[in-house]
C-alpha cells in the first residue's frame, strides 16, 4: 500500500470535513477498497473511516419503508431487516460471514461493482439513496459499472427501501469470487413489479423492463417463460459467456418469482 493518513471521525460533519481534503477517500467496511489498496490501485492521501459514526448505522421500518443507515453492515441487515425478508436474505448471502461483519450497504452502493448484490435490491425496490447533501432515486443513481451519481466526498447516509408485497433475490455465484455471475431481484409492489439484474450487463446493474411488464400483468413464473434477453451487451469472461449470462437471467427470474410466492 502507498502511505496515507488515517482518520476515524465520530460525526458525519467531521467526516465531510475530512473528506474535503485533497485526495481524501471514504472508507466504509473496506472489503473491496482495502484489497485494491494492497494492489496499489488507489493512492489516497487520507482514508476517512466512516465506521465510528453512529448516526450512519441502524435498520428501521416505518410507513412501509425500510431505512438502512449507510454504515450498516451486511450482517446487521441480515439480522435486523426482518420487515423486508428478501433484503435480509440477500444481505445474509453476501461474501462470507467475516466480510458481512465489516462490509456496509453504503460502501457497496458507492462502489457499484457490476457483480454486487445490493445494487439489484436498490434498483428493484425503487430505493432512494440518501446522502449528506441530497436524495437520489435508484433509477438515477446507477450509471454503469463502478460509476454512480455520487459527487466527490459525498457520503451515503441511508438507503430507503420501499417494502414490497413479495420479493426474492436469486444469485447464481461465480465459482471463484462467489460474487454474482448473475443475480436477479424481483419485487412486487401494488403498482407493479420491478426486476433488477446484477452481474450480467456490461452497463452494470439494470432493470429488465420486458419481464417487469409481463410480471406486472401476471406474477407467475410462467409469465416470463420463453422471455429472453440478447447476449449482446452481456459480460463475457472465463466463468460465463454473454449467452450463458443472458440465459441465466431468464432462469433466475423464474426462480425468483417462484421463491417470492
Amino acid at each position: 500500500m502507498y502511505s496515507f493518513d488515517f482518520e476515524r471521525p465520530t460525526t458525519l460533519d467531521d467526516a465531510v470535513k475530512a473528506l474535503g481534503q485533497d485526495e481524501a477517500q471514504a472508507l466504509g467496511g473496506g472489503q473491496t477498497l482495502i484489497p485494491s489498496l494492497k494492489q496499489r490501485l488507489a493512492m489516497p492521501s487520507k482514508l476517512v473511516s466512516l465506521a465510528a459514526i453512529e448516526e450512519l448505522k441502524g435498520v428501521t421500518a416505518e410507513g412501509g419503508v425500510l431505512t438502512v443507515g449507510g454504515g450498516t453492515t451486511h450482517g446487521t441487515v441480515a439480522a435486523e431487516a426482518s420487515a423486508y425478508p428478501a433484503l435480509a436474505a440477500l444481505a445474509s448471502n453476501i461474501g462470507d460471514p467475516a466480510v458481512r461483519n465489516r462490509g456496509t450497504v453504503g460502501g457497496s452502493l458507492a462502489n457499484n461493482d457490476p457483480a454486487a448484490c445490493y445494487p439489484a435490491a436498490a434498483l428493484a425496490s425503487g430505493a432512494t439513496i440518501v446522502t449528506n447533501t441530497r436524495e437520489i432515486a435508484a433509477d438515477d443513481y446507477f450509471q454503469g459499472m463502478f460509476t454512480t451519481a455520487l459527487d466527490e466526498g459525498e457520503i451515503i447516509t441511508a438507503v430507503k427501501f420501499p417494502i414490497p408485497e413479495k420479493a426474492a433475490y436469486i444469485k447464481f455465484e461465480q465459482p471463484a469470487s462467489r460474487f454474482a455471475l448473475v443475480g436477479v431481484f424481483v419485487a412486487k409492489y401494488s403498482d407493479g413489479v420491478k426486476v433488477a439484474v446484477t452481474g450480467a450487463s456490461e452497463e452494470g446493474v439494470f432493470r429488465w423492463t420486458e419481464a417487469e411488464e409481463k410480471l406486472s400483468a401476471d406474477f407467475s413464473a410462467g409469465a416470463v417463460e420463453g422471455l429472453s434477453l440478447p447476449a449482446e451487451g452481456m459480460m463475457s469472461d472465463l466463468h460465463g459467456s454473454g449467452a450463458y449470462r443472458a440465459h441465466l437471467i431468464g432462469v433466475l427470474t423464474k426462480r425468483a418469482v417462484a421463491a417470492a410466492g
Binding site: 482514508l47 467475516a98 465489516r102
Partner: peptide
C-alpha cells in the same frame, strides 16, 4: 465479538 478478516481491516479501525 465479531469474526472479521484482519487482513482487510486497518489497525486504526480497531481503536
Amino acid at each position: 465479538g465479531q469474526d472479521v478478516k484482519a487482513c482487510t481491516m486497518f489497525a486504526g479501525e480497531a481503536e
